[in-house]
């Protein structure tokens, strides 16, 4: 195991806490989370349901704002960013895969995939080229012109992954990406992630509660009641 020097670190948090307030009740979803993730690492966040996995992913993925603590991503202190800068940051540097496929039913697979590239200002030609490249990475080039309703759940999830890859993100976030899939499709998705990580050096941070997933990742961050209770790898 190599030393974790600062150069290699893409995500680092210090004493990260997130407290939800519902009426007078306060739920501490994250407590003092300090961790780091290296560039090129495939990391999994694991723990029981309600342990704070999604909450952690949302803080790191800039979809939510922590109550306390610091997040450094790619050397940038996140708390200093405006809302517009955070949106831009997500578009340029992050890719997301959610539990549900979350692609637009009105768009074809290819259009869904290149939408974030279009928003970056790429030309139609570049959008199509990059979109086809991304679809190739997930093995769906022949489905490019299909609409989501003509595709299986596994295929739709792969379209979502291709969309997440289109802008060559520094980090790919995935929150239980296989939870709604049958075991064959789940396996395919995990192998896809493994391959993206191994072959392209893609940094991936994935929430999962499948214990067997632990075997294929570089690092597992174990959460319980909002606290990091263990790190493996």
């Amino acid at each position: 195991m190599m030393g974790r020097d600062a150069q290699d670190t893409i995500i680092a948090t210090r004493n990260l806490s997130r407290t939800y307030t519902i009426g007078k009740v306060q739920v501490q979803a994250l407590k003092n989370v300090t961790l780091d993730i290296r560039r090129g690492e495939f990391a999994a966040i694991m723990g029981k349901s309600g342990s704070g996995k999604s909450t952690l992913l949302h803080q790191l993925g800039l979809l939510d704002t922590p109550t306390e603590g610091e997040i450094m991503i790619d050397g940038i202190e996140i708390s200093g960013l405006s809302e517009a800068a955070r949106t831009r940051f997500r578009l340029e540097k992050f890719g997301y895969v959610f539990q549900e496929y979350a692609i637009l039913p009105e768009l074809t697979a290819l259009e869904n995939v290149y939408l974030p590239a279009m928003a970056l200002g790429l030309s139609q030609g570049e959008c199509t080229r990059n979109g086809m490249d991304a679809l190739e990475k997930v093995g769906l080039t022949e489905r490019a012109d299909h609409r989501p309703r003509e595709m299986s759940g596994g295929e739709q999830q792969r379209v979502a992954i291709a969309r997440a890859l289109i802008n060559k993100p520094k980090i790919l976030f995935a929150d239980e990406p296989t939870a709604n899939l049958d075991s064959a499709s789940s396996k395919q998705i995990l192998e896809l992630f493994r391959g993206l990580n191994r072959d392209l050096g893609q940094t991936i941070l994935m929430v999962t509660h499948e214990l067997e997933d632990a075997d294929i990742v570089d690092q597992v961050i174990w959460l319980a009641d909002g606290e990091v209770v263990g790190r493996e790898g």
Binding site: G61, T87, R90, L91, E92, F94, A102, L104, A119
Partner: peptide, 16 residues
Amino acid sequence: RRQMGILRAIGIKESI
């Protein structure tokens, strides 16, 4: 609603 949330999550600006 969800789709719009996802679009915003992946970095599509609200104004768009």
